[in-house]
């Protein structure tokens, strides 16, 4: 297990380094930040002075290692737009994004587990079909559209829930549904096929042959075995939610990282974009590490390195 984790950690570091490199290159391709920072009537000498000050006159390789060095100590520079440290700007918004992603994930899991289990138990029945249609809707409709419909129905017409902003739990409900509906289809299908396989297995027949109750067999003996493929799905989609939350953040005026980064991109606020993307990569790697750890908890064969 320790060796397994170490190799995963190593892979994670390489992934983060890759993210840093991509961010660095993309930045250089995106246009000249000096044009944004200096007034329209700035002279050629002003440009040159600022270029030297920001180190943009150095060879690319030197720029990259300087960049890497500062990333390692958490120095992403100051936001061109707000004049505050870029990292602080992102770290301020990170809890809101995490909160939204976790809520969306919980919504997806709470829905996908019963849908997946029941559509396996009642394979090809109306239960199975309804579950499939419901899950497919979430995948077929873009999240911003779901978000707008939810606002229209639950916030405007029924006036049950707030339509925008972050605050108490009621603020979280609609954006979490808009974000969490998408992965329900994939999770349901993964769980359904895993359960179908497992319920045919010899060990389930063995459990039945000693008279265990059907409830224990399904929700304990079978579901725990199906949890490994489900955990993979959860890891993939949680990372996607962290990255893809910005659409929902914009629709619901949610003060998260995604929205901040999108604004920074439009304003060519490089340090904020860099901090946002690299921090997202770090969170992504951490989430995947947690998923790998959870495999070991679920399946003793992985824990014992078989």
């Amino acid at each position: 297990m320790a060796r397994y984790l170490f190799s995963r950690l190593w892979q994670g570091l390489i992934a983060i380094l890759g993210a840093v490199l991509i961010v660095f290159i993309a930045q250089r391709l995106a246009g000249d930040p000096l044009a944004l920072l200096l007034p329209m009537d700035a002279s050629e000498a002003d440009f040159e002075a600022l270029r030297v000050e920001l180190g943009l006159d150095q060879p690319l390789l030197v720029q990259f290692f300087r960049f890497l060095q500062s990333v390692l100590v958490g120095d992403f520079g100051y936001s061109y737009q707000w004049q505050t440290p870029a990292l602080d700007l992102i770290l301020d918004r990170l809890p809101a994004t995490l909160e939204l992603a976790v809520a969306g994930l919980l919504f997806a899991i709470v829905l996908a587990i019963p849908l997946g289990v029941f559509s396996a138990l009642y394979q090809d029945s109306w239960v199975d079909r309804v579950a499939k249609v419901f899950a497919m809707l979430g995948q077929a409709i873009p999240s911003f559209w779901i978000g707008l419909l939810l606002i229209l129905f639950f916030a405007v017409t029924l006036n049950w829930l707030p339509a925008y902003g972050r605050g108490n739990l009621s603020h979280l409900v609609l954006p979490a549904i808009a974000l969490g509906w998408y992965p329900v289809a994939a999770m349901t299908r993964t769980l359904r096929s895993a359960m179908l396989d497992i319920l045919q297995s010899d060990y389930i027949r063995m459990a039945r042959s000693v008279g265990l109750s059907e409830r224990a067999i399904i929700w304990k003996y079978a579901l725990r075995n199906a949890a490994v493929p489900l955990a993979t799905m959860i890891g993939v989609y949680f990372a996607n939610m962290l990255g893809g939350a910005f659409v929902v953040e914009v629709v619901f005026a949610w003060p998260g990282v995604g929205r901040t980064v999108v604004e920074a991109v439009f304003n060519r606020d490089f340090p904020v974009v860099q901090a946002g993307v690299i921090l997202s990569a770090v969170v992504f790697v951490l989430v995947n590490l947690l998923v790998d750890l959870s495999y070991g908890l679920i399946d003793p064969r992985i824990r014992h390195g078989r």
């Binding site: 010899d202 459990a207 042959s209 008279g211």
Partner: peptide
């Protein structure tokens, strides 16, 4: 399940490699 299987009648199955639950 409650009164017969495991209590009155039980089965020893064919394949020992697949008849035990791997995660318990």
């Amino acid at each position: 399940a409650a009164q017969i299987r495991g209590k009155e009648i039980a089965m020893i199955s064919q394949d020992p490699m697949t008849s035990l639950n791997p995660v318990f």
